[in-house]
Amino acid sequence: MADVSTQAQKQVIEVAFRPDIHRPLAAANAIGDVTQKLGLFERLSEKTWLRRLAVILVLVIAWELYARYASNELMFPSFSNTALAWWEGVRSGVLIRAVYGTMQVLLLGYAVAIGISALITTLAISTRVGTDVLATMTAMFNPLPAIAILPLALLWFGLGVTSLVFVIVHSVLWAVSLNTLTGFLSVSQTQRMVGRNYGLKGVGFVLRILVPAAFPSILSGLKIGWAFAWRTLIAAELVFGVSGSSAGLGWYIFQNRNALETANVFAGLLTVIIIGLLVEGVVFRSIEAVTVRRWGMQNS
């Protein structure tokens, strides 16, 4: 609008003629290397695990330095003492048994939850009502902390593995279902039509089109579910200790706190962290490497 006055002047600008130019191309071998290799440092810094290892190293050094400075083994044991306590726990088998006990319950609960989740999301995606029901249920139950229903679980199933499995299922089920359902719903219309074009429907359609197409989302649901299951179980073990025959990691931590073996408490926590890192960095990353990253559905 501001240009109305200048437009009104109608200044005519001509572009002067310039002759064509033709250039001979340089021969390919005269240009030299088109690609060049990166330096060693640049290549190493491309490795994600190496960068993360550096972060862990820095944290460990900071821990050790602070503990030595504070010099209070009862409240804040140093890394070296924690590592010693950890090694002692592993060697004596106490820590191994604790991890084994926890893992057993954890994997059982996790597997049951994934099974139920697969069933209800498959049922839910087939109809619009089902989708609404599941979406509402996940919205209701996902924010409810699993540990909050532990008293109820104890009332219903008593003091034992069943109660633990129940709270784990609760913590995993909604997170996984929510992610799976969201993944299913965001599968592109084209890919759905491709599947139906081949005559796929029902469970075959879900398994062969929806599940792989929504796999990035399902995988992140599984990761979140795994983290939730860990937290829930450790917390539950802290609350009621021995479950059935095996005492878990939570109980190990709780017991050592009572005995004021703080280095052992740290060793227990360190174990939780190590297992978490292993599952995230090895198990889930390998699954990602052969699936979503190979398929170009996820970049990092």
Binding site: M193, V194, Y198, G199, I209, A213, T291, W295, G296
Partner: peptide, 27 residues
């Protein structure tokens, strides 16, 4: 819908990303 009327779509994501070229054609 049925495979006696194969459709080629406009969108590039009509190829299933989790399958190789060969698997996509065999599927």
């Amino acid at each position: 819908p049925g495979p006696d009327r194969m459709i080629v779509f406009q969108e590039f994501d009509q190829l299933l990303p989790w399958q190789t070229v060969l698997q996509n054609v065999v599927f």
